[in-house]
Computed example of a mutant assay.
Amino acid sequence: MALNRLTNWFNLSKQYFFTYKDGFFNLSFLSNSPELIVKSSLKMPFMGHDKDKQQLIVDTPFIKGECSYAELEKGLWVMSSKMFHKNNVSLSPIYDRF
């Protein structure tokens, strides 16, 4: 049980770091639900947020762009992104089992 929690904590901490392998920068994000994707993105220091437009704005050495989101009704989300990749980037989803 403790090993599972420790492994889960390690996986969740990946979202705050990036690695470089085979010519790609590997970036991870928490993705259990669309709402959690938005909430976890807001905690990143390089993410901007326009609450009125429901938009996340990112400008890093890796990516520049925006992601618009809307919850049309409970549980039904629409997300649209327009990104310019400045480098080779690999995005990896992370799931919280607990």
Rank of each mutant, 00 (worst) to 15 (best):
V89M: 11
K21P: 05
L27T: 02
L91Y: 05
K39C: 09
K86C: 11
I57W: 01
L27H: 12
P34V: 04
L91Q: 15
D22A: 05
G65H: 02
F25S: 15
T7G: 11
Q54F: 08
K82T: 10
S81H: 15
D22T: 09
F84H: 12
N11H: 12
K82H: 10
R5L: 06
F98S: 09
S28G: 08
H85E: 04
Y95H: 14
S41I: 01
T19G: 14
P34C: 13
K14I: 04
L91N: 14
F84Y: 10
T60G: 05
L36V: 04
T7Q: 12
M44F: 11
L72F: 06
Q15H: 14
E73C: 12
E73W: 08
I57S: 00
S90G: 14
I57A: 01
S90A: 07
L30E: 02
L30D: 06
R5K: 15
S40F: 15
F17Y: 11
S33N: 09
R97Y: 07
K74W: 10
S92D: 11
P93H: 04
G23W: 07
Q55N: 13
Y95C: 10
S40T: 13
P45S: 08
W77M: 01
M83P: 01
S92E: 09
D22F: 12
W77G: 00
L27R: 02
F29V: 00
K14Q: 12
N26G: 06
K39D: 07
V89Y: 05
F25E: 01
Y16I: 02
I94A: 03
L56M: 02
D50P: 13
Y20Q: 13
N32H: 09
L12A: 03
W9K: 15
N11C: 06
S28T: 06
H85C: 13
S13L: 10
S80T: 15
S41A: 10
L91V: 01
P93Q: 03
G75S: 07
L12W: 14
L91G: 06
P45K: 05
S31L: 04
W9H: 09
K86E: 06
F10N: 08
L3H: 14
S33D: 07
R5Q: 11
T7E: 13
N26F: 14
F17S: 03
V58M: 04
S41V: 00
Q15K: 06
L3F: 09
K21Q: 15
G75W: 04
V89Q: 04
L56H: 00
Y20T: 10
S81E: 07
F24W: 07
F29Y: 15
F18P: 00
W9R: 14
N32V: 02
W9C: 14
L91M: 15
K43H: 13
H85M: 12
E71G: 04
F46A: 03
D59F: 03
